[in-house]
Amino acid sequence: MDFGSFLTVPEIKVKVVTYRDIFQDKAMIENRFGEEYRDRSAVIKLDPADLKQLSVKKGDTVILKNSFGRVVVRAEESGYETSHRGIAYMPNSPWSNILVSDDTGGTGVPKFKDISVTVTSAKGEKVTEPGF
């Protein structure tokens, strides 16, 4: 065993807010199972300080997990000037839906705007394929 096997991978807890994206919608209409749709949908946008804390660079894969599921997506910087550590953004898609609670509180509408997840680096892992 080497020394590195005893080090833990950095992880952070974030709240995920999902959103609709017109470019993602266009890609979905053209080919729901195509590369462009996956590239626009299987992504999480994080604050630059959160990326640094995770030791992750733009384009690296990360693992998102909570009690409802686990998914691997690409990490990107959010691009917002105002810091928003601990808050992340994902397009509404099959990848974000993996993490959504099935409890609707009697409303029939899932809670897409307040998803708690743990984020860790997914070095060497590929983005989760559709059909999970």
Rank of each mutant, 00 (worst) to 15 (best):
M1P: 09
D2T: 11
D2A: 14
F3R: 12
F3E: 14
G4S: 14
S5D: 14
S5T: 13
S5H: 11
F6Q: 13
L7Q: 12
T8C: 08
V14N: 03
V17A: 11
T18C: 04
T18P: 04
Y19K: 07
Y19D: 04
D21R: 03
I22Y: 05
K26P: 00
E30R: 05
E30F: 01
N31E: 04
F33Y: 12
R38A: 12
R38V: 13
R38L: 12
D39M: 11
R40V: 01
R40Y: 12
A42W: 11
K45S: 14
K52Q: 10
S55W: 01
K57I: 01
G59T: 11
G59M: 12
V62M: 07
N66H: 03
S67N: 04
S67V: 06
G69W: 01
V71P: 08
V72Y: 07
V73Y: 07
R74W: 00
S78E: 05
S78G: 15
Y80T: 10
E81V: 10
T82Q: 14
T82R: 15
S83Y: 02
R85Q: 15
I87K: 14
N92A: 13
N92V: 13
S93W: 11
S93C: 10
W95A: 02
L99G: 07
V100Y: 06
T104E: 04
G105N: 09
G105S: 09
T107S: 12
G108A: 02
K113G: 10
I115A: 04
T118C: 00
T118D: 02
T118H: 00
T120L: 04
S121F: 03
K126H: 05
V127I: 13
T128V: 01
T128H: 05
P130G: 00
P130F: 02
G131W: 02
